[in-house]
Design a protein around this nucleic acid. Structure first.
Lengths: 179, 179
DNA sequence: TCCAAGTGCGTACGAACGTACACACTTGGG
DNA sequence: CCCAAGTGTGTACGTTCGTACGCACTTGGA
């Protein structure tokens, strides 16, 4: 298939699908190629190595998640709305999907052993912080960001739905109490 | 070497070392054997498969961390001491070492694709919760546990030291404000 | 002392991997 | 229409992996 500009993106999305389903430790050229519906040779043609594919895939993940994160917080009119927005980010079904949470975990884990991906994780934190800073003080941003991260992970590990009222209360006391 | 009862434990510790250094995705029989200073055949003799080694190693990790977690919280005399203890768990150099944090990340990531390890993660959360319950209300336990988890991870991804005063304030606010 | 029973390991094999590369195919200027 | 230049792919190679297994070695009862 000549001149397919979407080919690279399709491969990266397939890579994320494979990572989410099997984990980085079982992500291979062949599995990605099958998931993307492209020949094996196409991967080595478009990307230097498997490392490159993983790195680019995680970059794509970070960008799309940051965008969503930012959109949700920008949509909040005032402080109270921002607290609702943060509660949504933790409990919501659009951000904290199993796929995204699995991928975030994989990114952190892989980033601990791969500098470029580690840097992506740091950028992702920085952008989250910037989005929160639209509504909260710097210290509150740090605390809220930690809370979001920890709670979404717990929610996923536990596989139980969250108590939304409790989340809302906690977000509120942190937002108001930490200065 | 006949009748070496510490052999299995040594292999599991070596497995954790390899996981912490290289990640699960590059953890192999041969690397573990080298790290443990035992022959390759010794691994297949003592363990059914690599999966089994990883699972047992993560189980060992969870037990030792839970024990530390519990000891720190049991050592707190009152509520104020417990708040200090939680602050220590987040900022401290004994619990939140790079090695432990890397391993926790690896365990969560691997647990998403392996039921037995996923169950270990759930047990680890439950025991953390039980330790916290010595001093705080159930809702506060949930919130604090999420905060600990998120903040230790952030600390590690960012590779920057934490603001202890901020952590202490946040813990206090959550412990007092969430009922 | 001797020898079965059990313990532990060196080695080898098939499978799956990442990657290279020769080659088919498409394309656009002449 | 033609053919060089460029685009994309099927295949094969060397490496590394998990695992099996024959065999050496240790041990304890007779």
């Amino acid at each position: 298939m000549a001149n397919d500009p979407l080919r690279k993106e399709r491969i990266l999305d397939a890579a994320l699908t494979v990572i989410a389903e099997h984990g980085v430790h079982r992500t291979t050229h062949r599995r990605i190629a099958e998931a993307a519906g492209v020949p094996l040779g196409s991967l080595t043609y478009h990307f230097d190595s498997l490392e490159t594919i993983l790195t680019e895939a995680f970059r794509r993940l970070g960008e799309s998640m940051s965008a969503h994160y930012d959109a949700v917080l920008r949509g909040a009119a005032d402080r109270s709305g921002a607290i609702d927005a943060v509660t949504d980010l933790i409990c919501g079904e659009t951000y904290a999907t199993p796929r995204e949470l699995t991928l975030i975990n994989e990114m952190y884990a892989y980033g601990n052993h791969h500098d470029d991906v580690g840097e992506l994780g740091r950028q992702w934190l920085e952008r989250s912080w910037a989005s929160l800073a639209l509504h909260f003080t710097p210290p509150a941003c740090r605390a809220l960001d930690a809370l979001i991260e920890g709670w979404t992970i717990h929610q996923f590990v536990e596989r139980k739905p969250l108590d939304r009222a409790l989340v809302h209360t906690t977000v509120t006391v942190v937002a108001e109490g930490v200065r």
